[in-house]
Design a protein around this nucleic acid. Structure first.
Length: 919
RNA sequence: GCGCUGGUGCUGGAAUUGGCAGACAGGCAUGGUUGAGGGCCAUGUGCCGCAAGGCGUGAGGGUUCAAGUCCCUCCCAGCGCACCA
């Protein structure tokens, strides 16, 4: 995925909080939280030693009352040292190919996909944050019996790599592949279950061969075309950009923030607009409303009518309007300055002014021209048009608020009911005729102060007077519908739909990308390179610094080719493809990265596709996520893939900000380097902290003290499972299967726990399991960790109450480590395999089965309210009837006191969970 | 302007379908353990109040026995789109 670097300001949380009195807020910003501690250059607190602090946790354990006599003084070598055990397990899993995913028709498949990283050099929190939890969830699915494919690869082509390479004077290829090596190591250090045998790199010839092949398929199906047009050009990166890569009010380059300019160029486009309506259909997609809305707005569909006006000379002027019901109020027309009919309608006495205005408009940048608050300007052409509904002769103006790029470049202006037209009419003294009368008002064009853009009854409109018009645009508006049908019956207009969406511009005048596999000859025009000549290799001996010309064009021989049709000398296309083309199909390459008879092995496709869950950033909503949907639909129509959508379920994580609440960036010095944190706390701690500290969809600022919480938790986990040799032997002793939970282990236990303690322990275990099952499915990772913390706290209490050595204790330990395994794969493996001596690997165990009956409470504490206010609680059996609960509540002395002898008006027993007494 | 999110203690955040607001952590405070420091353990910690008690999920209203949750109006913040006819 191409890295998106948006300049937009970063989200600030807690609005209500930021409204607090200024001094406090200011103080909060300035005063460091931990004044006494030394901070390193990157803002991370430096402890005395980078290595884990020594066997402290153990010692603390020893100091607890119960364990003191246990005679474990020699245990100091047994502390939790993630730095030692994590790499050991990673190597073992790797060696054993533990996470290799192969087709297995007997098991249900689960394709878990996380957005592939861009090869920018270092893994940062932008990668950890989505990948850690995605990995945990993939592991959860795997333990639940799914055959899980969780692949990874690298988005390796593109501008950022090329720019970085230029800056350093290294060849982009060298730079990129060096980064990949480093990133691979970092991804492994996270303890992820990626199937490395399926790794795919978009800059490998074996990969881009098929990217090129897909281009040719699009071309063959009429979906790739070349067109001369005014395209967005980044003057700094020296390349064209897709509409989607131009962002913000100031229309800047999405990567470098430079304002883009327009340039007339002949470029390759994909006809993505053919799929506009299908892309608006999210049926069957479990995606967030946010992404669906972003895509819907981006496509910008509007329904209305196209209406044919005539010039006095008889030329047709087609306009698009969402409000054909206001046609009778169209008192002038406005053309975009570039409109082809401008020359023909302009009269000689207005030519000078018109030409001058057009020159000015052409000189202005898009930014100036599109500024919404700019006062509208325009000039009269001297020409007139005939309104087809009432034969009125109306003046034609040109103005730069009408865009050639939307609709037809000409509009009918209805000043009485459109704010822009109104402003224009008032400024230039044009006629204003109201055609929609709001309830109880009498609009007058002379005195109207603002356009009336709301509902009312149609007036001044011949056959439609009296028709009610609503606020709705499109055919939901009865007036629009009626007028459109009338226009159609008379042949002067028809129903029409317009989109904001543009075709996808994919040509790039840069070096580091997949060459566009097309050849041009004078006789046969543009033709695709034959399949047996793919890939069109990207040459390495090229001066790849951007000059504005495609670097490949400057190569002495590369562009020389033979026309595949007639064999004449021909020229290769020297532009490369937008990297978003590479990332539109990477999920398919993962299926069979070595396959060379097609982009993917059909057998793999049939088993694994579609993607079941997709995770990644929302910043790609109108880019990658829209492109890949378009790509899939186009390839479906070409018969290459199946189904309507490539990714069924998607969840988007938020962003981790720097500790100062600002977006992490090197220049701000607030970047938190994951490698350093792994070195200090271990991957398990980092994984679980990132899950615990935020609502995953929200993200938030990094907090270097907050991580201490999960570090403590993991030390306590370690301590519980390792400090007491008695518990260890008993766990081993009862580890044979078939031990019914209620049966005591027959090993010497010294257990003093009573049945209630054990029952409560088992209840808590299964309640936790129930919650964790639910939370994994719902991507609610923070409560998974807090549930595990809660259970651990209860296990400590149960241990202190003498639960050690019982079957319930054994079950709790086993279930605990299985639930911990997806979240903290290393510590769970170590405790499971080494300390509990259970069969390697914990990651190949099946998920614990929920005992719903055990999770149920048998005595419940029921809050009793009087008039909705909590006054007392009564404890009743979970089986108690509503009547029994009611009498128990009314028997309470506290409640009787509140009743003051009166009879309650009403007593509500809510789902056996609460009693409310109404007096 | 339009659209989508969201607003809960000092902080991050919990709260299945409307049913005990503040789980779990961080921070802070007090005590214990320790040669010291760190670590660990225990207890406390929404706000007001001496207390009884009252108040409390952005603001105001409504529905309901009961509202963080549903409805209406508004405010604030983030993000997206934006002269789109």
């Amino acid at each position: 995925m191409a890295a998106t670097k948006k300049k937009s300001s970063v989200k600030k949380k807690n609005t209500s909080k930021s409204r607090r009195p200024a001094p406090k807020a200011a103080a909060k910003k300035v005063v460091p939280k931990r004044p006494a501690k030394k901070a390193s250059a990157n803002g991370i607190v430096v402890r005395k030693a980078v290595a884990p602090s020594l066997p402290r946790s153990d010692r603390s354990e020893l100091s607890t009352r119960r364990l003191k006599p246990a005679g474990v003084a020699a245990r100091t070598d047994n502390s939790y040292v993630p730095q030692a055990l994590e790499p050991r397990w990673q190597a073992r899993w790797d060696k054993d190919k533990l996470y290799r995913a192969v087709i297995d028709a007997r098991r249900p498949k689960h394709y878990a996909l996380t957005m592939l990283p861009y090869t920018s050099g270092d893994l940062h929190f932008g990668h950890w944050y989505p990948m850690g939890p995605s990995d945990a969830r993939a592991r959860f699915k795997r333990m639940n019996g799914y055959n899980v494919l969780f692949p990874i690869g690298f988005d390796a082509f593109g501008l950022p790599a090329e720019n970085a390479a230029i800056k350093r004077g290294i060849h982009p290829k060298k730079w990129t592949y060096k980064n990949i090596e480093n990133m691979r190591r970092q991804l492994k250090s996270m303890g992820t279950m990626f199937d490395w045998d399926r790794e795919a790199i978009s800059a490998d010839p074996a990969y881009y061969k098929w990217t090129q092949w897909f281009f040719i398929q699009l071309f063959k199906h009429g979906l790739a075309y070349r067109k001369m047009s005014a395209v967005d050009w980044c003057p700094r990166d020296n390349t064209t950009l897709a509409r989607e890569q131009v962002v913000g009010e100031n229309r800047v380059c999405e990567r470098c923030g430079t304002p883009v300019i327009k340039k007339d160029l002949e470029q390759w486009f994909f006809k993505s607009t053919d799929y506009a309506d299908q892309l608006l259909d999210f049926d069957g997609l479990d995606w967030s409303q946010r992404v669906k809305t972003l895509q819907t707005n981006w496509i910008g569909r509007s329904e209305g009518a196209s209406v044919i006006f005539k010039t006095e000379a008889g030329d047709d002027i087609e306009v698009f309007t969402t409000r054909p019901d206001t046609l009778w109020g169209a008192t002038f027309m406005v053309f975009a300055p570039e409109h082809p009919l401008v020359d023909r309608v302009t009269t000689s006495d207005h030519r000078l002014a018109v030409d001058e205005y057009r020159r000015q408009a052409a000189r202005q940048s898009d930014i100036e021209r599109e500024a919404a608050d700019k006062e509208k300007t325009g000039v009269f052409t001297g020409g007139f048009a005939i309104n087809p509904v009432n034969q009125e002769r109306i003046p034609i103006w040109i103005a730069d608020y009408v865009l050639m790029s939307y609709g037809t470049g000409a509009i009918m202006a209805v000043p009485a009911h459109d704010a822009r037209d109104f402003a224009f009419a008032r400024k230039y003294g044009l006629k204003i005729v109201p055609v929609i009368q709001p309830d109880g008002a009498e609009l007058n064009g002379e005195t109207l102060e603002a356009a009336h853009e709301h509902a009312g009854l149609i007036i001044n409109s011949g056959p439609f007077n009296g028709t009610p018009a609503t606020d709705d645009k499109g055919m939901q508006n009865p007036a629009v519908k009626a007028v459109t049908e009338w226009l159609e019956s008379r042949g002067i207009g028809k129903r029409a739909v317009n989109y904001r969406y543009r075709d996808w511009l994919i040509s790039r005048q840069r070096y580091w990308g997949a060459p566009i596999p097309m050849v041009y000859c004078q006789k046969h025009g543009w033709n695709p390179v034959p399949d047996d000549q793919l890939p069109v290799l990207l040459p390495e001996d090229v001066a790849w610094k951007p000059t504005g010309e495609s670097p490949l064009k400057l190569h002495p021989t590369w562009k020389d080719a033979i026309c595949p049709v007639g064999g004449e000398p021909a020229v290769r296309e020297t532009d490369t493809m937008d990297t978003f083309m590479c990332s539109s199909w990477y999920h398919l390459r993962y299926l069979s990265p070595q396959y060379d008879r097609g982009p993917f092995d059909p057998a793999e496709y049939n088993y694994w596709m579609p993607v079941d869950t997709y995770t990644g950033g929302i910043e790609h909503a109108t880019m990658h996520l829209l492109y890949t949907r378009f790509f899939h639909k186009a390839m479906r129509d070409a018969g290459i893939v199946k189904g309507n959508e490539p990714m069924l379920q998607m969840r988007n994580q938020g962003i981790i900000l720097g500790e100062d609440g600002e977006k992490m960036s090197k220049s701000r010095g607030n970047v938190v380097p994951p490698d350093e944190l792994v070195g200090r706390y271990g991957a398990d701690a980092l994984r679980s902290y990132l899950m615990f500290a935020y609502r995953w969809q929200e993200g938030g600022p990094w907090n270097s003290t907050g991580i201490e919480g999960v570090v403590r938790w993991l030390r306590r986990v370690w301590a519980l499972f390792t400090t007491d040799p008695a518990s260890l032997s008993q766990i081993l002793g009862s580890s044979g299967r078939g031990g019914s939970p209620s049966r005591r282990s027959n090993l010497p236990s010294g257990s003093s726990a009573d049945a209630a303690v054990l029952k409560a322990l088992r209840r808590k275990v299964h309640q936790t399991l129930q919650n964790i099952n639910r939370d994994f499915e719902a991507f609610e990772f923070n409560t998974i960790i807090s549930s595990l913390m809660e259970l651990l706290n209860d296990m400590y209490k149960a241990r202190d109450a003498g639960a050690l050595g019982t079957a319930e204790w054994h079950e709790a330990c086993e279930v605990y480590l299985k639930m911990l395994a997806p979240v903290c794969p290393h510590i769970a493996e170590e405790l499971w395999t080494v300390h509990m001596k259970r069969p390697y690997s914990v990651h190949q165990q099946s998920w614990p089965v929920l005992d719903a009956a055990a999770a149920r409470e048998d005595m419940v504490e029921i809050p009793v309210q009087v008039n909705g206010k909590l006054r007392d609680r009564v404890t009743v059996s979970a089986e108690a009837s509503e009547d029994e609960i009611k009498s128990a509540a009314l028997a309470s002395e506290t409640i009787r006191k509140y009743l003051e002898g009166k009879e309650p008006k009403k007593v509500i027993v809510a789902q056996k969970r609460l009693v409310n007494v109404v007096v």
